[in-house]
Amino acid sequence: MEKFYTRMGDGSVIELSESELKRDLEEGTRDAAERAKIPPLSEDDLRRLLEIYECPDKSVGVERGKEVILSYDSGTTKFNRANVSVSKLQSLQIYERMLGADTMEMGHMDYSYKPAKSIMWIEQPTLEQALLITIPALFYGAMPNLGLYTQPDGPCPNPMGLIPQGKISEARAAQEEMAEHAVKDMVYVGSVMYESGADGINFDTTAAAGDAEFLAALRAVEILRKKYPQMCIEVGMAGEFILGMHGELTYEGVRLAGLYPHKQVELMEKAGATIFGPAINTNTDKSCPWNVARAATFTKACVENSHLPIHANVGMGVGGIPVTETPPVDSVSRASKAMVEITRLDGL
């Protein structure tokens, strides 16, 4: 029986028969459909995915004419993490001139709004110089990262310490206070960077700390949209499901805990976002075909329910990409092609 080369969600190589591939694709889409109460992928979609995973080529790509726009979270930190000694300006020139970047992003190495706030006076002139010498649109980005607002590093009691003690109302109050601080920092950084000339602001890995963080991002988007009607605001998520760490928070009458991407985007659109990025987490115990079918199911429902351009997160550990620091080209190119062609994405 013919076997097809693929990988598990942790990147390790496996070989699957056609029937095993079909089973994984069907189980992946069913898992997403049942969790989010959305339609599973169609027979045509599953057949297309099967073709992608049966293709023996090392690397694959979308059909000519189906190319999409790439945006980058944490753009200028990536080369430094690989210990390549280049400045932010040089990083952006590499993105522009060597990597075919459709858009670019500048960010602080400590990629959260709270630490970025205190070095804005250094970041602003760097961004201003970058805008003079580069051509593609330039975002400034960081993470809302509510966790940074807890003691001892931040001003608020730690809800994760309060919950085990049964102090639920205190934990909720702490999260509400953390969200207020985060909104101020996001609005401050977004404002100064836009007033320095940035084309847009990116809220990356949003709702990593749950529903209070998602609410903070919604409020920050709302304020920035009122202040700067022309500003591009991109919101990328941390995971497919908003954790109910608070549990009672709402926006426009909608409870935030438990929302899946097709509902998350509705609220971000109301708040005033320009581009939305759903993030579907990779399960390392399942195969890449299972993970891509699952990610495509959530993302397709999000695209179909959105008036905004959708740039899905397809980076390490999300969007069907294995959780490994050196993502294999075979897995990444298959996830890239599958997510674009199956879900009709506007970008990645």
């Binding site: 690397s59 190319e67 999409v68 990597l99 050196t326 294999p328 990444v332 990645l348």
Partner: peptide
Amino acid sequence: MGDPLGMHITHSIASGMGGMR
């Protein structure tokens, strides 16, 4: 993380428009 070949270059070739190229 920091693996531009595994991530940026692969996506750019597989599905990106090509930037200012």
